[in-house]
Design a protein around this nucleic acid. Structure first.
Lengths: 198, 198, 198, 198
DNA sequence: CATGAATGAGACTTCATTCAT
DNA sequence: GATGAATGAAGTCTCATTCAT
């Protein structure tokens, strides 16, 4: 049949991405079928192929789109301290829990070329706190025994939000931000004065 | 056909679990087929059903087995401080990265009844540090602004090891343990004296 | 959208037929999609339906068109001998190898009604050499053991050109014509004098 | 479900090949679906994949099997003259019209690597009459104006049987053999004495 | 007339699972 | 206990075709 009255490509793509994001986050990429995505979107499975050449391309689109938006948002933030970064990171992800979740759960579902691309985007983003920590140590503002492990642990901590955060939780976004900033400051051994300034 | 010479049921089950653990960790439960498990094991797909009624049961077996072994190991450990727990947790998981990985990645692949069962086992284990933190706060040994978020963050930090640890990494198990204990102590605001005693 | 500048219906139909002819000859009717035809033509798949009601109609159009043009060309030729016919047939087809090819390869792709129609056109054309051979035998000019088999063999021989002829081959059209006339003359046992007169 | 009582692999493969041969010959490889083959065989489409990794492999199996059997049959024939070959070729193929048909109709359906393989088998077989004609010319037994075109025309003639032969035709196999031998002898200008000796 | 969004059927193929042997 | 033949459902993806725009 022909075009459904009133439908446009932009809307359909948006609905497809939204449905895919939701399903991938809830059930995992491999467990989601094109038919399931179609059913959530109100189109036939075949129609998806007007917008995405393969199922993998939907995932790549979501992941790359998220990483680029994240990077761009940080640029606009104009933050400079590690605390700025933590606050930004927590706030950004807590309002996009599904993106955050698939972003580090579904890397293994990517074909090699796509994996490389997304991994590089991630590395670019994670280089931001990494650099901050290294600089802080060099400047004597931070006191850290093993920069490598500490950096990875902080990143793991930030990503770990994914594991437990639920939008309907009883903790406010602001509270979580504050606690995370304090935790990170403690992890890097920032002086208490600085901690209080957050 | 008769039993393959020299194989026993126990051995076959062990091989099946080992192969499944490996494949689930690497590719994800949904992406692994019974034939793939069979191929890794030198058994026909049909023969797997002599040991496990369904594919889901393999996963449940792995997850429940891991949680029970983990719990039992902690009992034997006879540790009492949060630092004891962190050391135990890191050491235990770094030698079983695949179990740790699927243990929190594949919860969503479980059917409801199985999910409830495994989640309860997890909660039981995570209650250990949770209680320690609460007690520490009550005793005035820890200084924490939000116990709830802090506890979750610490658990997320511990689980996050999964994300970056590779057995061939250049960091020794002991080094990682030490850094993690210090980080956790800082997160809970343990007095420095205690930190040094770790 | 409005018509693409400079294109007329006649031109578009011609492009569609040319592309279809090429694809059908190379890959076979069943293996060619409307999208493939569209892609070769610079038209959207949907637009093809402005010119042909179905994919089958494109094939019918090509086959019927070819048979009618072939018949008409022979009428204009005003030949009378079997040698005339062979020369005409070879020359006509060697400049239209794709039409010749689909003309006897794709009969089976026709729906019953279309099949009957095209088969009748073919029979009309093949009746020409058939009649010539029968007449030649009746007149004592040809010496043939089994007219039926011989006729079919000659037709098969002529159609067989398809199988091996390539436009870039090193044999000239004239050479092939000459050889084929001699072969056919020999097959029907025509007297040598006649053979030389070709 | 499990094995149908009494079924064996050898039987199922045989039924699959027979059904595929029939369908490919009648409708063309591209127009035949795995479901259609399955339906003719009394199994589910999926069961075919226990025996053939892909649809293409069925075709390759049929074509390669035919060419090898053909070559082997000619070896056993111990013929030496062109007439021997023609008789063999006609007889062999008229009892296997479907194999003959797909053998030169479906070459284009082969993927490149498979095409090369089957084409080489064909070339090996066609080298037999080619050599005979060349030798006959060299020995002065044949009188031919253009060996190249003549050879190809003869092969086309032999393959052309495909086009018109139907098993229910009213012509006996022996009659067709005889006529074809005579036709070929005439095409190569063999001396009449030899022709009579066939 | 042309576009392009959509359908619904059906393509090849893989899957978890079953069960006669 | 193990094999391997088979099922039936479902997977990703393509197809001819339609029709709102």
């Amino acid at each position: 049949m022909a075009r459904t009255a009133g439908s446009t490509a932009a809307e359909t793509v948006a609905r497809l991405k939204e449905a895919s994001l939701d399903l991938f986050a809830r059930e995992g990429y491999a467990a989601v079928s094109m038919r399931a995505i179609a059913a959530c979107t109100g189109v036939q499975a075949g129609a998806i192929y007007n917008y995405f050449p393969t199922k993998q391309d939907i995932l790549v689109d979501l992941l790359a789109g998220h990483m680029q938006a994240l990077e761009a948002a940080w640029q606009r933030e104009e933050g400079s301290t590690l605390a700025d970064f933590v606050r930004f990171h927590v706030r950004y992800h807590l309002t996009r829990p599904r993106e955050m979740f698939i972003s580090y759960m579904e890397l293994r579902s990517l074909e090699p070329a796509n994996f490389t691309r997304i991994r590089d985007l991630r590395r670019g983003y994670e280089a931001i706190p990494r650099q901050m920590i290294e600089d802080g140590i060099a400047d004597g503002k931070f006191d850290v025994s093993d920069p490598e492990v500490t950096t990875r642990a902080i990143i793991a901590l930030l990503n770990g939000l994914t594991t437990w955060y639920r939008e309907d939780g009883r903790l406010s976004l602001g509270e979580i931000e504050t606690v995370y900033i304090r935790l990170v400051n403690r992890m890097v051994g920032a002086r208490e004065e600085e901690e209080e300034n957050v």
